[in-house]
């Protein structure tokens, strides 16, 4: 789930969630792809959270070092997280020492409960605890309505907070973690695996699925070129095919966000209101993104709210 206020989306999906009759299967069989040696990711489906997909909609996975494993986003629900854990255990017996919570959105973090028994260090942005305080329970209830409380999972608060940069060592395999200014959300982390040259852009990068704006458009447009300047052999986006060329994979998103900013500013400059912006901004992007009609108008609203203060 990627929306700021998932209520709307939960409402859309609510008819699928019938109490006590949860479907109990994922839309796709759980499969990790090895995008680089020791780097394994599951591609999330380009759908919204529902009982049919167990909120398994984000790209989630792990990086395996000589001594330990880091999970990079535990998944969208306790059942999604449990499937990830089972898949990791099929690959390695090494301890799961770190679980990265890339940002506050439920499709990325609600699998954390499946890893509590491993007693890992849960890693998050310095602003993540506040974001979870504000929204965690709200998200949990919404997810529990869809999947049932047990399948949804608990809110897990990070214990290792990243304010700018942090490295973690999996045994000769160092992951660089970067905390960003508000962009996709106000608590985004990205990771870089030095050994394989893999950039995990998390939800700073959407490929194919329309980006969801829930932080700052201007911040996102500042952060994306900085990320693109980082040399990487490949990128794993938060949504979309799990291994992509870098920095080329960000071109579509950059075009979308720039279009959103430019056209929204133009509406504001000519005195147009939010409704006019929703009617006119970014329509050239329709057809280029999955779930465009579900998210685009919200993105315009967010952009307008931010840019009208410039």
């Amino acid at each position: 789930m990627i929306a700021r206020r998932p209520l709307l989306l939960f409402c859309c999906a609510a008819p699928l969630a019938c109490a006590g009759a949860r479907a109990g299967f994922a839309a796709e069989p759980f499969m990790l792809t090895e995008v680089a040696p020791g780097v394994h990711f599951r591609r999330g489906v380009d759908l919204d959270a529902s009982a049919r997909d167990d909120d398994a909609i984000a790209n989630i996975g792990c990086i395996i070092g000589a001594d330990a494993v880091a999970v990079i986003d535990p998944g969208g629900s306790a059942v999604d997280g449990a499937r990830l854990r089972t898949a990791i255990r099929a690959l390695t017996d090494k301890p799961i020492r770190y679980v990265i919570l890339s940002h506050v959105h439920p499709d990325h973090v609600f699998g954390a409960g499946a890893f509590l028994a491993d007693q890992p260090v849960f890693v998050g942005h310095a602003r993540l605890p506040a974001a979870l305080a504000a929204r965690g329970e709200f998200y949990r209830k919404g997810l529990a309505d869809l999947l049932g409380a047990a399948a949804a999972g608990p809110v897990v608060v990070p214990s290792l907070l990243v304010t700018e940069r942090q490295t973690i060592d999996l045994g000769g395999r160092v992951l660089e973690i970067t905390a960003h200014e508000p962009a996709h959300t106000d608590c985004d982390l990205t990771l870089f695996d030095r050994q394989s040259g893999t950039l995990c852009a998390t939800d700073l990068l959407f490929v194919g699925r329309i980006p969801a704006l829930d932080g700052s458009l201007r911040g996102w447009l500042r952060q994306l070129p900085l990320l693109q300047a980082q040399a990487a052999a490949r990128v794993v986006p938060g949504h979309g095919p799990v291994s992509q060329p870098w920095p080329d994979a960000a071109a579509d998103e950059l075009r979308y966000l720039n279009t959103l900013a430019r056209e929204t500013r133009a509406v504001i400059a000519r005195g147009g209101d939010i409704e006019e912006a929703i009617r006119s901004v970014g329509l050239g992007e329709r057809g280029r993104w999955r779930l465009f009609d579900d998210y685009h108008a919200r993105n315009v609203t967010e952009a307008y709210k931010e840019l009208e203060w410039e």
Partner: peptide
Amino acid sequence: APARAMDAALVPID
């Protein structure tokens, strides 16, 4: 007002 609001916390009215 929009018949279906994009954001229930920000419903523009005219």
